[in-house]
């Protein structure tokens, strides 16, 4: 009997303590995450301008969603331009950062290598630096007379023609096409006249602009340190005897990398790619500081469009709708990517 009441008393004590310990967290999460999310879904169906009292906003159903997704007009064009830019951004940055950080991790992880902690520290340092500070630095380097053009000039023995990176709206694929004489003037009508979601086919295939490419390079530079550390930790978890056994069987380093390292790193790879996708689809600070979406809207990303609509154009409702569409896009991408690369990661 005494034992039973003792246990029951302890249960009650645990219940009280558990919920008490969680209270601050639950309170802050409810007020600043859960309620805002519900509010966002509601406000995405209103025409609230962000200035008048929220209660005065008019309910307009799915009009905001129609405006960005299906109704031809500037709002649809802006949304799909932003989607295009953000997608080029992710397509460039995610593979670059994943491959480079993996290579770095493998090289730094070599058992005989000296100065290991020096390399680790150096590569990781940009990851702890403020995004605004780094953006200002690169803004400086990307000037016409800046560091990047000078380095490229030296490497090409002066053949490189300096460009004002952040003011250059030319798409990379457009530039390559122009070498073969294909420009907007000479392109066939089906490319320049066909309109898909408010953006012409010719525009869809532009590739990232020079300005966006500059930000992509900077973003890769900033993030590979973190991802290298994640890969390094995973590499150290692969037991040494696996390599030793394969060495006895005569496996070459390349075979080891392909047959042991890569498969064992699969879950980590999934994690890094997911982090990369989530990060790139939200790129904001760098755009705000370096380009404000310009030149010619070629660095307009979805996150920046959300901000611009909500806070500069007094269209909070529209901004909220774009944010929710972005959420769905990120969620879907993560799920698709999980299907492709992650099925084994779950086991």
């Amino acid at each position: 009997m005494t034992v039973a009441t003792g246990v029951r008393g302890e249960d009650r004590q645990n219940a009280i303590a558990g919920w008490l310990f969680m209270t601050p967290t639950l309170l802050i999460f409810s007020v600043f995450i859960i309620i805002p999310i519900i509010a966002a879904v509601y406000f995405s169906m209103t025409n609230w301008n962000g200035i008048s009292p929220p209660a005065e906003a008019n309910f307009i159903g799915l009009d905001n969603y129609k405006a960005i997704l299906t109704e031809p007009g500037i709002r649809q064009t802006d949304f799909f331009t932003a989607l295009k830019n953000t997608t080029y951004f992710a397509l460039g940055v995610v593979p670059m950062q994943t491959i480079l950080s993996l290579l770095l991790a493998v090289v730094v992880n070599q058992s005989l290598l000296r100065f290991k902690s020096f390399f680790r520290t150096t590569y990781y340092f940009p990851s702890i630096t403020s995004s605004v500070a780094i953006s200002l630095m690169f803004l400086f380097f990307y000037q016409k007379s800046g560091l990047v053009n000078q380095v490229l000039g030296t490497l090409t023995f002066g053949a490189w023609e300096p460009i004002a990176w952040m003011a250059d709206p030319r798409g990379l694929i457009h530039i390559v096409l122009s070498w073969f004489g294909l420009t907007i003037q000479t392109a066939p009508d089906f490319l320049t006249q066909t309109d898909l979601f408010g953006v012409t086919l010719w525009s869809w295939i532009s590739g990232p602009s020079v300005a966006l490419t500059g930000i992509m390079i900077m973003n890769t530079w900033t993030t590979i340190g973190t991802m290298m550390i994640i890969f390094l930790a995973a590499l150290q978890d692969i037991p040494n005897f696996v390599y030793e056994a394969s060495q006895i069987d005569g496996a070459s380093p390349w075979t080891q990398f392909r047959r042991i390292t890569l498969p064992m790193l699969r879950p980590t790879m999934f994690f890094v790619v997911t982090l990369g996708l989530i990060g790139t689809y939200q790129v904001f600070d760098q755009i705000y500081v370096m380009s404000s979406g310009g030149p010619a809207k070629t660095t307009l990303t979805i996150a920046y469009l959300v901000y611009r609509n909500g806070f500069n154009n007094s269209q909070m409702g529209l901004g909220a709708a774009i944010a929710i569409v972005l959420f769905i896009i990120i969620f879907a991408l993560t799920m698709i990517q999980r299907r492709i690369t992650g099925s084994e990661a779950d086991n």
């Binding site: 600043f32 406000f43 989530i278 901004g319 929710i324």
Partner: peptide
Amino acid sequence: PGIVLLIPMFI
């Protein structure tokens, strides 16, 4: 994603 919370947080 943090950016999704931008406007709701402001509200």
